[in-house]
Computed example of a mutant assay.
Amino acid sequence: MRRGHRPSVAPAGRPRLWGRHAVAAAFANPERTVRKIWGTREALAGFGGLPTDVTVQFAEVTDLGRMVPADAPHQGVVIEVDPLPDIWLGDLLEQGRDDRRPLVVLDQVTDPHNVGAVLRSAAAFDALGLITQDRHAPPESGTLARSASGALEIVPWVRVVNLARALDEIGEAGFWRIGLSGAGKRPLGEALGTARVALVLGAEGEGMRQNTESHCDELARLPISPRVESLNVSNAAAIALYAAAART
């Protein structure tokens, strides 16, 4: 790649991922199709081995910087990929029929940093998967993958057309659907019980929509100090996932 040359824009629907963790996780994911790799010689050498059927183009740091958002920490490598294959909710529920791993459901959380951070926590606490509404969630992107630090390739992410219907299906599969809300009558620790749980969280500020709340079995609150009105949705998800994982 010549100095000063601006790389071509990725074709519509093909995200570009960057950063060592996100790229290494993409290479390791058999469900991920990598179309092209750009990187410095030093950064690419650090991966040990690259996919053999993918075009590799050596680039300078300044060239890579033009391929990602301003000041994005690309760490010397950028890849172009196909979006991951769709996952059906029914298939995910069937896979998790015999275990107690929690589900995470996000209601209109659109910030890719938040969704990426939730995916990272979901991976850390071995959640069964993430459920979002297709039209009100961010697409796969380098920003989201970077925030997820590899978890985008690990945690099943189901996008549904209608979140209320999805919650009905989740309930029919035997999950106790707990919506996190400051208006909850019980703290989350008491609401968790021993059943399989789906943790439902709304967008920061607006919270869950009323229709989403009505499809939960219970609303529960996190026992935070009254000096703080609320937590960022990704922080709340991490705490809730820890509480679910720590049940005896």
Rank of each mutant, 00 (worst) to 15 (best):
G4S: 12
G19V: 05
G19K: 03
R20Y: 06
H21F: 08
A25P: 08
E31I: 05
E31G: 13
R32T: 14
T33Y: 06
W38F: 15
G39C: 15
G48Y: 07
D53K: 15
V54T: 12
V54Q: 12
Q57G: 04
F58K: 11
A59Q: 12
E60V: 14
E60D: 15
V61N: 13
D63T: 15
M67C: 08
V68H: 03
A70L: 14
A70P: 08
D71N: 15
Q75N: 04
V77P: 02
E80L: 09
V81K: 02
V81G: 01
D82S: 14
D91W: 07
L92F: 06
L93G: 05
L93S: 09
R100S: 14
L106S: 04
Q108E: 14
V109T: 00
T110N: 05
H113W: 00
V115W: 03
L119W: 03
L130C: 10
L130D: 07
I131G: 03
H136D: 15
P138H: 10
P139T: 13
P139H: 11
E140W: 09
S141M: 10
S147Y: 00
A148V: 09
S149H: 10
L152V: 12
R159F: 08
L163T: 02
A166D: 07
L167S: 06
L167Q: 05
A173Y: 02
G174L: 07
F175H: 13
F175N: 00
W176V: 01
W176Q: 10
A183V: 12
P187F: 08
G189V: 13
L192D: 01
G193Q: 09
R196G: 01
V197K: 00
L199G: 04
L199C: 08
G205R: 12
G207I: 04
R209K: 13
Q210P: 02
N211P: 01
S214G: 10
H215A: 04
E218Y: 06
I224K: 01
S225C: 11
S230F: 01
N232H: 12
I239M: 11
L241G: 05
A245C: 10
T248L: 14
T248P: 11
